[in-house]
């Protein structure tokens, strides 16, 4: 009986917590059951989820990516320079925006692949290898922009942060697309299976002919790509890009979402859906506290408590096996 309870908690604990939170809010938070509340929460959580999807894949291989926040800053620094014509003047605004997005995302993808290369080729610990860009990345972003705040008003670009399709914010759609894509990759694709095998037992994977090096480089490249997208969304919302602030602390928010979502931090198992639920739970806790007049600083403490609780539940679930 106790084992079944533990198993249930491990599998559905976060989902149950999210349900309870919603119930609680319906009771105590004024105007909770409105479309606006839903929109506010989803738009705020979207960038975290987009980054956390990549983090889920990285963690499934037994790694970690600390560089995502800095990569967001780099994407955020590069894109405005292109569409504002600071590098070369481009006549057509649509071409300029498309090129800006492409340049930003390609850059962060390559930097992500570089992380993977360090880890796979030179067997550097992921936490150390990605620390390089965690530190240097933000510096690079500041050098690119000379430390200046870039302010812009380009609706064609800001569509990804402020626009809506059928009433749904575009970044929420982006978030759902990436979640769905990652779920599908893990379930159905060769890459997904091989990725889980590398995380579950790297030696066995290599002996089965899997190129563990290629898998790792790809997974960090994906994480870099998603960080780039998230960086673009953030500056689009803000109508400004500050290399000091874009993506600050994002690596920890993403890791927290992954942990609360019930992913094994040691690798070999991955639930992207869990990550989504984890991110939503953390977001809703913060919202609940703010909406009820608790200051943001106190909300951080509660966030930490939730992470501890989630990890504790995981441990109990594993001990019961």
């Amino acid at each position: 009986m106790a084992e079944q309870v533990n198993d249930f908690l491990r599998r559905y604990g976060t989902l149950a917590a999210l349900g309870l939170l919603i119930l609680l809010n319906l009771l105590i938070t004024p105007n909770f059951a409105t479309l606006q509340t839903l929109n506010v929460n989803l738009t705020q959580v979207a960038t975290i989820v987009i980054v956390a999807v990549g983090m889920t894949l990285v963690i499934a291989t037994g790694g970690i990516d600390l560089s995502v926040g800095s990569l967001m800053a780099i994407a955020g620094a590069l894109a405005p320079m292109v569409f504002m014509g600071k590098i070369v003047a481009i006549g057509n605004i649509y071409v300029a925006v498309a090129l800006a997005m492409l340049v930003a995302v390609v850059a962060t993808t390559i930097l992500g692949a570089f992380n993977g290369f360090l880890i796979a080729r030179y067997r550097i610990q992921p936490i150390v290898a990605t620390l390089v860009l965690f530190i240097a990345g933000r510096g690079v972003a500041q050098v690119i922009t000379n430390g200046n705040l870039q302010v812009f008003k380009v609706p064609e670009f800001q569509f990804i942060g402020l626009g809506r399709v059928l009433g749904i914010p575009v970044q929420v759609i982006l978030m759902l697309v990436f979640v769905a894509l990652a779920v599908w990759i893990l379930r159905r694709s060769l890459f997904g299976r091989q990725l889980l095998a590398v995380g579950g037992n790297e030696k066995a994977a290599r002996l089965s002919g899997i190129s563990t090096r290629r898998i790792k480089i790809a997974v960090y490249a994906i994480s870099g790509f998603l960080a780039g997208v998230a960086g673009l969304v953030v500056i689009a919302i803000n109508s400004a890009s500050d290399a000091n602030l874009v993506g600050l602390g994002m690596e920890l928010d993403a890791i927290a979402a992954v942990a609360v979502g019930g992913n094994l931090l040691s690798g070999g198992r991955a639930t992207v859906f869990g990550t989504l639920i984890g991110a939503l739970t953390i977001q809703l806790v913060r919202y609940t506290l703010l909406a009820n007049g608790v200051p943001d600083a106190a909300a951080l403490v509660v966030k930490a408590a939730i992470i501890i609780l989630a990890v504790w539940l995981q441990q109990r679930g594993r001990a019961a096996q």
Binding site: S189, L190, R193, Q194, L196, A197, G200, N201, K203, A204, A205, L207, S208, G209, I210, L264, G268, R269
Partner: peptide, 24 residues
């Protein structure tokens, strides 16, 4: 344990680990 099985994966996925590229 160390070099053979991927403990958290299913019997099917473990069995198909080497063949999977050919099955895709």
């Amino acid at each position: 344990k160390v070099e053979g099985i991927v403990p958290d994966m299913s019997v099917a996925d473990n069995m198909m680990l080497a063949l999977m590229p050919a099955l895709s």
